[in-house]
């Protein structure tokens, strides 16, 4: 419990900073919706006149521009990008910081097992993410309510907003496994930023690898926002993939950390 409290406290400031910036981005972006919507009206008439292949090439769904939820789904990728960096940062730093800040022998000479340490740190990181997500969902809800022009489905909104948490948890577990695999992490952000952007680039490779196949590679696309918007549910196969990956990452983290040589100084 001590480790949990200690970790939670030391993360608190960065968690609050991340939460504020995510909330600020969603608020500012949603504030643009009214002006955008006006253009969208004329856009809609225009789009209907386009031939089908052109519409497909542009990958545009007219709904995106019409409803407030469509606009929200469109800007969600940027939120996801920031959120993923936060989660990966957190995952990478939790275990590696003991070595980086030379506190590993202080911690590991305490009468706690390594399993307990990993558990406490995981819990602390999860708590931070849950905090971020609760604030995020509340702020998104308020922003949407402020700018909405028509009614929208609260259920679909919540389903979409929750995917931030799912993606973050996956990146958190990825961060944990990476932090025990990489021998020496000197700077967390120099790993997390390129990794997340790497997934972002892979996302763009869709036209070579195939739009369907690429989605299995990059967690940023596991939860297709268009699909949620039209169908009102998640795609089961990606849900299963996420759970499998998480179980693998987390159990491997326990396993490796349990046996790992941790050098003092």
């Amino acid at each position: 419990m001590n480790i949990f409290k200690q970790e939670f406290k030391s993360n608190l400031r960065s968690t609050i900073t991340w939460t504020i910036s995510i909330a600020l981005v969603v608020f500012l972006v949603m504030a643009l919706f009214p002006g955008f919507n006006k253009d969208a009206q004329q856009m809609e008439d225009l789009m209907l006149g386009f031939p089908e292949p052109l519409r497909e090439a542009l990958q545009l769904n007219i709904d995106v521009f019409r409803s407030v939820l469509g606009f929200y789904s469109f800007t969600f990728l940027y939120i996801l990008l920031i959120g993923s960096i936060q989660a990966l940062n957190l995952g990478l730093s939790m275990l590696s910081k003991e070595q980086r800040e030379k506190t590993a022998d202080f911690l590991l000479t305490k009468p706690v097992t390594r399993v307990k340490i990993v558990t406490a740190k995981l819990q602390a990181a999860l708590t931070s993410l849950i905090f971020t997500n609760i604030v995020y969902i509340i702020i998104s809800y308020i922003s949407i309510e402020m700018v909405k022009n028509t009614d929208y489905s609260i259920k679909k909104f919540l389903m979409m907003a929750l995917t931030l948490f799912f993606v973050q948890v996956l990146f958190l577990s990825l961060g944990f496994i990476l932090s025990v695999l990489i021998p020496k992490i000197k700077s967390v952000i120099s790993i997390s930023l390129p990794t997340v952007f790497g997934f972002f680039i892979i996302r763009m490779l869709g036209s070579i690898i195939g739009e369907k196949e690429v989605r299995y590679i990059t967690p940023l696309e596991y939860y297709d926002r268009q699909y949620i918007l039209t169908e009102g549910r998640y795609e089961t196969q990606f849900f299963i993939i996420e759970i499998i990956l998480m179980v693998i990452f987390i159990s491997a983290t326990y396993f490796i950390y349990h046996k790992k040589d941790i050098h003092s100084i």
Binding site: F36, M43, L46, A57, I201, M204, L205, I208
Partner: peptide, 28 residues
């Protein structure tokens, strides 16, 4: 490379893309 590969997909729709684009509102 990833970005330009999208061009190939885009290009197959032909010249009409420019006319379509010019009608788009700026914000979009």
């Amino acid at each position: 490379f990833a970005g330009m590969s999208k061009f190939a997909a885009f290009d197959s729709t032909g010249q009409s893309i420019n006319e379509a684009m010019s009608a788009f509102p700026d914000s979009i």
